[in-house]
Computed example of a mutant assay.
Amino acid sequence: MSADRLVAFLQALIRTRSMPGEEAELTDRVVQEWHDLQFDEVRTDAAGNALAFVRGREPGPAWLLLTHLDHVSEGDASLWTHPPFEGVLEGDTVHGRGAVDIKGPLAAQTYALAALLARGERPRRDVWIAAVTQEEVGGEGAAHLVAHPPGEIGAVIVAEPSSNRLMLGHRGVAHVHVQLRGRAHHASLALHDQNPFFALGELLRRVQALTFEPHPVVGASSLTVTQVTHDSGSENLTPNTVTAVLDWRFSEEDAENRATLARLLRDLPTDAQLAPLWTAHNTPGFSTAPEHPLARLVAPYAAASQGDVGATPGVWKFATDGRYTHAAGWPTVGWGPGDEGLAHTTQERVSVPEMQAYATALADLLSRETF
């Protein structure tokens, strides 16, 4: 596998800005690369997802290699050591927005397949590779993909950054906007029962006291307050309303979450609701047991890509499109190059040797294994 071509492709991806809903130019660039690499079928779908197919040696359900096209904003570009959209190669590291989330993993999955074809080999089973839209804002592209599958899918590898560690899932994520009501009045009156900041204080106390039972794979849920806004325009005027945003990372079922929220808000001046499941403000996670055949199959290849035969699987803190493939009944694990701690930061970068190790191990997996 040519490191030069892998790096050049990654740099081209980074240099193509692709915010959610604005992925079309990047889709075209990915499709062009897959055509140039002579994948057997290359196309896009109605959601703007990029899809390609590489025919295997044996019949049966296909692998799905899954990444996405969009990235978050670069923020203040002056805070970056290297310009966020130049794809600077410094030593053996490529810098830029999307380097780990998720253009490095997309490039590595692409060149794992390219490496097989370049040496005249075919994967043992058919392989679909997909780069989908709007992952960063709820997963509209992945939702379309599982509703309109390109073929029979037998197993999914989600290549979000994991430092090449096998990942067994992640918790769900919900955002609840709690608007606490009061009555605006002059601060000198100090009417605490009409000041919604005191109701907010009680809400914060309850959130702090809340505990969850640990899930055997993805761990215990968490709930915290991330934003607080109010409608007072003066330092000597209390607000009519205070709104707090609750960030909820959960493993419980939806009905249990709704009951928990009801207890959390009981007797407070609010009627906040948890959004319906499978909307942008409430999506579940997924978990795959370490004993699952897919986890056992991928584990040694992930360990090889880490250079650690004793490596143990992990779970992601953040959400991925694996929630959609898992819910569709497609066995799903995670495995991708890049440090997840660098995602969405101004230090975002990815190691070229790590991408190469991943691509080599993934090519070996695809050439040897079935399920």
Rank of each mutant, 00 (worst) to 15 (best):
L6E: 15
F9Y: 01
T16Y: 14
R17E: 02
P20V: 07
E23L: 13
A24D: 04
D28F: 07
V30M: 07
E33F: 01
D36L: 14
D36K: 10
L37G: 07
F39N: 05
G48S: 04
G60I: 00
P61W: 01
P61R: 06
T67M: 09
S73E: 09
G75C: 07
S78H: 00
S78W: 03
T81M: 11
F85W: 08
E86N: 09
V94K: 02
D101F: 15
D101A: 09
Y111V: 00
A112I: 02
A115R: 09
L116Q: 09
L116Y: 12
L117Y: 01
R119A: 01
E121D: 12
R124P: 01
V127W: 08
I129D: 08
T133Y: 12
Q134Y: 03
V137F: 15
E140L: 02
E140Q: 09
H144Y: 02
L145P: 12
L145I: 06
L145F: 13
L145C: 12
V146I: 06
G151M: 11
I157D: 10
R165T: 07
L166Q: 13
M167L: 08
G169I: 03
H170S: 01
G172Q: 06
G172C: 08
V173Y: 00
H175G: 14
L180D: 15
L189W: 15
L191A: 15
Q194N: 10
F197M: 12
F198D: 02
L200N: 03
V207R: 14
V207D: 06
F212W: 12
V218D: 12
V218L: 12
T224G: 14
T224F: 15
S232A: 08
S234G: 06
T238I: 05
P239S: 06
V242D: 07
V242P: 14
T243A: 11
A244N: 05
R249S: 03
R258D: 04
L265W: 14
P269R: 13
T270W: 14
T279V: 12
A280C: 10
F286S: 06
L294G: 11
L294P: 06
A295H: 02
A299F: 08
A299L: 12
P300N: 02
P300V: 03
A302Y: 02
G307N: 09
G307K: 08
G314F: 00
G314Y: 00
W316N: 15
T320M: 14
Y324S: 03
A328D: 06
G329M: 00
V333I: 15
W335P: 02
L342N: 10
A343Y: 04
T345H: 15
Q347H: 05
R349N: 06
P353D: 07
A363S: 03
L365S: 15
L366C: 10
R368L: 14
E369K: 05
F371K: 12
